[in-house]
Amino acid sequence: MFWIIGLAGLGLLCAVGWLPLKTWLIKRRVEKAVPPRGTFLQTSTGRQHYVDRGEGPAIVLIHGLGAQLGNFDMGLIDGLARDHRVIAIDRPGMGWSERGDETPANPRAQAAQIVELIDALDLDRPLVVGHSLGGAISLCLALDFPHKTRGLALLAPLTMLGGKVAPPFQALAVKSGLKRFLLSWTLAIPNSIRNTDMVLNYTFGPETVPKAYSIQGGGLLGLRPVSFRNTCRDFLASARDLKWMNSQYDHLPVPVSVLFAREDRILDANLHGAEFARQNPAIHLTLIDGGHMLPVTQPEICEKFIRKAAAESAGIGEQNPSDQGRIG
């Protein structure tokens, strides 16, 4: 019996010891498959990774929870860059951007961090585009720094208090920093791979996942310990400023346009879209068919929507009526 217990304990120890090595090997393969595609800039949070394409009026793209700038690089960046200067960022701590454990992760703090990049690149009041959590960050940027943007174009944004937490995010509520670290090097990445179909069904459904999403869309970068840890921190901090944000919507300082898909399985379009739009008659809501990952699945529709928002925020007229019909 003693030897049986000893062998069982040794087997368990070997299994636990194998997990960090397995995670490290996955991390190395992912980083080789999806290397940095842009430029690095030093800010208060560390090195920040971004791409900068095109010339013309500036547009800044801010991605959502657990994502990175590749979500915009499935056609949207290049489409807009035909006549705009487009800056897509890896938010601090995500993709290839750095963020220390002591750096705050709530939306208002992240908005201030992104303003650092806007200032460093000498951008003149860019249109700010935010997807999902990036939408909440964009709203905080406009509310706290209205002189830094001429308008917002929000894609399936987080805007309102309340609503249910989608199943893929429930495992992210890890409050202990030590537990996040241990999980990130043991169970988190293997579990993410095991649950891939379930996660993608919620985040993309009812639309299908484009074949290029893993590499060109940067999806594989989520399979790294640092990504898990910072996604947990972002998730836990995501609602921290919503009460304050909700109290400010009746006097938004810049034009705000919102694009939502009716079948979104992550954020309720009725709450975060329609109810949000009711807070201020100056908020313009467009509803389409589809899921949550609009920059990836419908980049052409997003481009038309953003172009319309850019034109309206610049006061240069409306979009072509035929395009409006295709968006709405």
Rank of each mutant, 00 (worst) to 15 (best):
W3Y: 11
G6E: 10
L7R: 12
A8G: 00
G9E: 11
L13H: 05
L13C: 11
W18H: 09
L25F: 12
I26E: 09
R29V: 06
E31K: 14
V34W: 03
P35H: 02
G38P: 10
T39Q: 12
Q42V: 11
V51G: 02
D52K: 08
R53S: 13
G56L: 12
P57C: 07
A58K: 00
I62M: 14
H63D: 03
H63E: 04
L65N: 03
Q68N: 08
L69D: 02
G70C: 06
F72P: 01
D73K: 00
M74D: 15
I77L: 04
I77A: 03
D83P: 07
R91D: 06
W96D: 05
E102W: 15
T103L: 10
P104T: 04
E116P: 00
D122A: 07
D122G: 03
L123M: 08
L123A: 03
D124S: 10
P126T: 07
L127H: 03
G130E: 12
C140Y: 04
A142S: 13
H147D: 12
K148V: 05
R150V: 15
A153I: 14
L154N: 02
L161Y: 00
L161S: 08
G163L: 01
V165K: 04
A166F: 05
P167T: 14
Q170P: 03
G177F: 01
L183F: 03
S184K: 02
W185V: 15
L187N: 09
L187M: 12
L187S: 12
I189R: 11
S192L: 07
S192F: 01
R194D: 07
R194T: 09
D197N: 03
M198R: 11
Y202V: 08
G205T: 08
G205Y: 15
E207H: 14
T208W: 00
A212D: 15
Y213S: 07
G218T: 15
V226K: 05
N230R: 10
C232M: 10
F235A: 05
F235I: 11
R240N: 02
D241G: 02
K243G: 05
W244H: 09
D250G: 03
D250I: 09
H251I: 09
L252S: 15
V254I: 10
V256T: 15
V256N: 05
S257H: 11
L259R: 07
F260D: 03
A261M: 07
I266W: 04
A269P: 05
N270G: 02
A274S: 08
R278H: 05
T286C: 06
I288F: 08
H292C: 03
P295W: 06
E300G: 14
C302E: 12
F305H: 03
K308R: 09
G315L: 09
G315V: 15
I316T: 15
Q319I: 13
Q319D: 06
G325W: 06
G328E: 13
